[in-house]
Design a protein around this nucleic acid. Structure first.
Length: 637
RNA sequence: GCCAACUUAGCUCAGCUGGUAGAGCAGCUGAUUCGUAAUCAGCAGGUCGCAGGUUCGAAUCCUGUAGUUGGCUCCA
């Protein structure tokens, strides 16, 4: 008996019955057998030693195939578990999946791991690699699997087996003294795992649920080669160097204080950036027909009961009492806007009405989840609420998309992705209303030709939302903009407008933001630009550096003239060498430096240096200032 | 909130197993007047996050507390 399989180049190959992927690879060449990690049979990844089916299409997976990276990481996770079990026999294993840039494995241990354990575990892993332990697949019956893991004293694995749907195949893998429940596939031998590193320790709840036991998680990563691993570690370093918390401190932008946990203090330089962002958004509001409003910070709880926040959002709100009356600090602007809308009669001719509000919001976030500027307890949004008729949703949405694209283009954010978040468990309103809202957003996206993914259950309590995600300079994704339809709040506040036939209609409310929170946006922007803001945002746009005090008079004049044009100039009259002044300006990431010595002071010129492009030569002060003003005005990147 | 780690001068960090706190940079003073990433010298600066405890003695050990950091299912 023999079988035939089809190779990727469409050739057929005859093999004896029962032959495996390894046999196939060996038949083609010993070097291929050596490089082989797994096979893909009829589109499905499988172990190298899987028996081949007659007539199947089979490809040998090696390091060159993209799917092999995941394979290696998964097998490295197992290698980690094996090493841990050898070193700490009492440890119970949880799960060990592959994640974005590596893998993790969770363990139930009496004493959590410490960072000092990592090198020890890693050394044991290398030992197992040296041993070249064979990794063997085994099919298991459900009862057999449960019995086996019970016998092994692995309660978490037993629990996992119980969650595997009836009818699914259950399989285990043996590698020497270690046995694990796993879907696979895996590399055939631990000797194939060459480049890996354990990175960190973290506590993690079993199944991510805080009611469950806390496990000790070890994160690691693996690559095909040491070189790729090192490159990856270098990228991590780069990201660390751009960390907005570090740069914010170094550049004097903002600080945090225990007196106001997770609440930023913007220093003068950070405030310049912040205000420039607001100015920019204001200009766009003018262009796109928004009206800015100002609303109170603290409002009676009665309002929050009307809006539904009291029932659905109270755990994120701050409360306060005065004269025995209970108030809440606003976590959102929308209820205030509804009061304003409702205070006047509106005609269909007035709609849409777009209220924009930079009001300061406070939201209580659990202490463990705050993070620098990106997750804070007080912030402002470039927030606006659009009251419109049902027919106007589509045009409003199209206009919003145009606004969004304009803004993201200004900052150089690319790779926009869109997600539609649907009804959460905790919500207001009937299913019919949610059906309508989700359908309206979906249809609007379809009409705009924007592909999107679904985030089931991630919507706001008052309505579904669209979230817009971009990629920064390091290709990391960030969610910025959002657009939400809300039928509920107009209903609860009994908002109305007079329709053409004289009867009353209920407006639809759209919640939307482009930058999202200004605080968070600033953090993202610091990382995106590595702190080197474009001229229009730079706290100091030009540093004026006299070489000797003979040049002080002209330098002072240059600074005054820059200031007269609305430019932010810093005059460095310190008794320091030019080199030192340049170094300080470079470290402060000032876009332009003007070197002024005797020659320049004499001729009324400046020697221009750019923070990235270096010495740009001499030009007249007027020409330089005109160019700088233009670069700032046009918001060049 | 939970698990773990961290918290020493304005900043970045030393300070071994407990024996009365140190550097660089920044700051201040003075000298130097200099051409594209740090001129030199001197001075000053900390009740070691906070509160208890152990000890003859605590930055160091223990307990509590605050803040920060890494995480808390991209499902065997």
């Amino acid at each position: 008996m023999s079988i035939a399989v089809r190779l990727p180049d469409d050739s057929l190959r005859q093999l004896p019955d029962g032959a495996t992927g390894a046999d196939l690879a060996a038949g083609i060449g010993t070097r291929l057998l050596d490089a082989a990690l797994a096979i893909r049979m009829d589109g499905r990844l499988s172990d190298l030693k899987t028996p081949l089916n007659d007539g199947a299409s089979v490809a040998i997976i090696t390091n060159k195939d993209p799917e092999s990276l995941e394979l290696i990481r998964h097998s490295t996770a197992h290698l980690l578990a094996q090493a841990v079990k050898r070193l700490y026999p009492s440890a119970r294993v949880g799960i060990g999946p592959v994640i974005e840039d590596g893998f993790y494995y969770d363990f139930l241990v009496e004493k959590p791991f410490t960072p000092e354990d990592l090198p020890i575990i890693e050394a044991e892993m290398r030992k197992i690699v040296q041993e070249g332990v064979e990794v063997v697949h085994e099919d298991l019956g459900r009862d057999e699997a449960i019995a086996r893991f019970e016998a092994m004293g692995e309660p978490l694995k037993v629990e996992v087996v119980a969650t595997i749907p009836q009818g699914d195949r259950i399989s285990g893998y043996r590698q020497g003294d270690f046995y694990d429940l796993c879907r696979g596939p895996h590399v055939p031998n631990t000797g194939k795992l060459k480049a890996f590193k354990l990175l960190s320790i973290a506590g993690a709840y079993w199944k991510g649920d805080e009611r469950n036991a806390m496990l000790s998680r070890i994160y690691g990563t693996a690559f095909h080669s040491q070189k790729e691993l090192e490159e990856h570690l270098k990228r991590l370093e780069e990201a660390k160097a751009r960390d907005h918390r570090k740069l914010g401190k170094e550049l004097g932008l903002y600080s945090f204080h225990p007196e106001a946990p997770a609440s930023p203090f913007f220093h003068p330089k950070g405030t310049v950036v912040y205000n420039e962002l607001v100015t920019y958004v204001r200009e766009l509001y003018f262009k796109y027909g928004y009206s800015e409003v100002i609303t109170p910070q603290i409002l009676d709880v009665a309002l929050w009961k009307t809006s539904g926040h009291y029932e659905n959002y109270a755990e994120n709100m701050y409360f306060t009492t005065a004269e025995e009356r209970e108030y809440a600090v606003k976590p959102m602007n929308c209820p205030g806007h509804c009061l304003m809308f409702g205070s006047q009669k509106h005609s269909y001719r007035d709609l849409p009405i777009r209220y924009a509000d930079f009001g300061r919001l406070h939201r209580y976030e659990r202490s463990g989840v705050t993070h620098g500027l990106t997750r804070v307890r007080t912030f402002c949004q470039d927030d606006a609420h659009i009251y419109c008729t049902p027919e106007q949703i589509k045009t409003e949405m199209a206009a919003f998309l145009a606004l969004l694209k304009e803004v993201y283009d200004t900052f150089g954010f690319e790779g926009m992705r869109v997600a539609l978040s649907t009804r959460p468990e905790k919500r207001l309103g009937s299913d019919a209303i949610w059906d309508a809202g989700e359908a309206a957003l979906g249809a609007a996206l379809d009409e705009a030709g924007m592909p999107y993914t679904l985030n089931p259950g991630e919507g706001a309590f008052y309505g579904p939302k669209i979230e817009f995600q971009i990629l920064d300079a390091l290709k990391r994704p960030w969610q910025l903009g959002t657009l939400q339809v809300d039928y509920m709040m107009p209903e609860r506040f009994e908002l109305a407008y007079t329709m053409a036939d004289g009867t009353e209609g209920r407006p639809i409310m759209l919640h939307r933001a482009v930058l999202g929170s200004l605080e968070r946006f600033m953090g993202i922007l610091v990382e995106h630009t590595a702190g080197a803001f474009p001229v229009w945002l730079a706290p100091v746009q030009v540093a004026i550096l006299p070489i000797t005090d003979r040049a002080h008079a002209f330098s002072t004049e240059a600074a005054a003239r820059a200031k007269a044009q609305g430019l932010r100039a810093d005059l460095d009259l310190r008794n320091e060498s030019l080199k030192a002044k340049i170094r300080d300006a470079q470290l402060a990431k000032v876009p332009y430096m003007l070197v002024i010595g005797d020659r320049e002071a004499e001729a009324g010129t400046v020697s221009v240096r750019h923070r990235h492009r270096g010495d740009l030569g001499v030009q007249s002060l007027d020409d330089f200032l005109a160019g700088l003003a233009q670069e700032s005005r046009e918001r060049c990147r």
